[in-house]
């Protein structure tokens, strides 16, 4: 076991973990941040997406050892009420399981591109699977949040 220092949603933590444990599990089990979901465990669905040093990453692919010293934002710590409200208003969340990852991916897009086109939104969200919505309302939510 190792002590892994991480800053999560603005708070510093020292987490006891085996080096190969997944960051996803440290967040969910050690810190109780269960808003980050596991849909596949192999980097395909984006349900476990978080902000890792400002980048969108799939936390199921990051070993604990590699997270030492990182700054992490999960859905619980994401301050973007406008985007979250847009998902509520447009119906961009159905079962909700993809929603945390989808909102983080949308947030990262809007940070780098204030006024994305429909195509740019579709491409930016292509790493986050949603089986419920068909994406129409998710795209509406992103457009609504950008205004």
């Amino acid at each position: 076991m190792r002590q892994i220092p991480v800053t999560v949603n603005g708070t510093e933590h020292l987490i006891e973990a085996w080096p190969m444990e997944r960051l996803l599990d440290l967040l969910r089990r050690n810190l109780g941040l269960t808003g980050t979901k596991e849909g596949c465990g192999e980097g395909e669905c984006g349900a476990c997406a978080i902000l890792f040093n400002g980048q969108l990453v799939n936390s199921c692919l990051i070993p604990a050892a590699q997270s030492a010293g990182s700054t992490i934002v999960t859905i619980e710590g994401l301050e973007d009420s406008r985007l979250k409200q847009a998902f509520i208003d447009t119906g961009g969340s159905q079962c909700g399981f993809c929603t945390p990852g989808m909102i983080l991916a949308s947030h990262v897009l809007l940070e780098s591109n204030e006024n994305p086109s429909e195509l740019e939104i579709r491409e930016a969200l292509a790493g986050n699977l949603c089986r419920c919505t068909g994406f129409t309302k998710i795209i509406e939510a992103v457009r609504k949040a950008r205004l």
Binding site: L33, T34, G35, T36, K37, T74, I75, E76, K84, Q85, F87, I88, D89, G91, S93, Q94, G96, F97, T99, P100, I103
Partner: peptide, 15 residues
Amino acid sequence: PRREAASKVSGRSIY
């Protein structure tokens, strides 16, 4: 709006 939408978008829903 969906009744449980606020908890879903904030990661508070308990699966």
